[in-house]
Amino acid sequence: MFPLSGGLFLGWALGANDAANVFGTAVASRIITFRKASILCAVAIIIGAICQGEGGIHTLSGLSKQTHMTTLLVVSLSAAVTVTLMTIMRLPISASQATVGSIAGVGLATGSMQWGGLIKVTTCWVASPIGALIIAIIIYKLLAAFIRYAPISILTRDKMLWSGLIIVGIYGSYALGANSSANATGIFSGQFPGVSDRQLALLGGLSIALGVLTYSKRVMMAVGKGIMPLDAFTALVTVSSMATTIHIFAFIGVPVSTSQATIGAIMGIGLVRGVHSIKFRSLRNIGFGWLLTPIIALILSSSGYAIFCLAKPAL
């Protein structure tokens, strides 16, 4: 079971990083305290992982046929180290990119890469921010029409946004658990006798929840204040669009980046409101992080594999 620790470490790093995309805007806007947000988020992630986490596990376990425990350890550790590095640098990166980058590194080194699966995953990476952008525009227009034309009090508006943010935050956390638990434990599918994919998804969900509870505050603040000033309304649109998008991809069974979906949603709001409201510098830094993530993960995992090969030529 020792190699699983690498996956659980990755799950922890993923939780520390990706919870920001679900509750970051609400916490940074002081709509909900970090403590309450992290507890709600952790519980919903675990439920999401149990209910819908298996689809992603099937996809990731099919990317590269690795059966040796040391190789699996290298893959999971490389992804975890990549995500941790990026988290320390306060860059909201993609854990799924780190995982797939690591799998690709070992897959290329061993010549066992399943290119069909990789193309499917990378296509979804491109599709997820575009999808979130379109969904954000639709949700924005619908909500804006309601608030503009319904005679409501400023207090009722607050109540609606407050409740809305909590609900979509919980839904987003559920979708995060459903979509991303595979990143933590997906590569171990079928490796441990008696451990089902659902149990692996639960373990992944638990590790993500632990990351949320212990180390997600800093990135939450970075995401909440980084790209565009988010008020309660834009936060609601952003999180609901991101949550819907990643939930759709959880149904498809491809883990996608919550960060990319969030940025896509914020871009959608920016397009509706006027592009001047987007901080392009932050956007550029985040894009830079995305580019680096799979490359660093790939280099780490292929180097790690090479080191293990030198130490144990039987690999």
Binding site: P151, I152, S153, R157
Partner: peptide, 8 residues
């Protein structure tokens, strides 16, 4: 109005 129909 702020407390009944704030947009107006």
């Amino acid at each position: 109005k702020l407390f009944s129909d704030f947009t107006n």
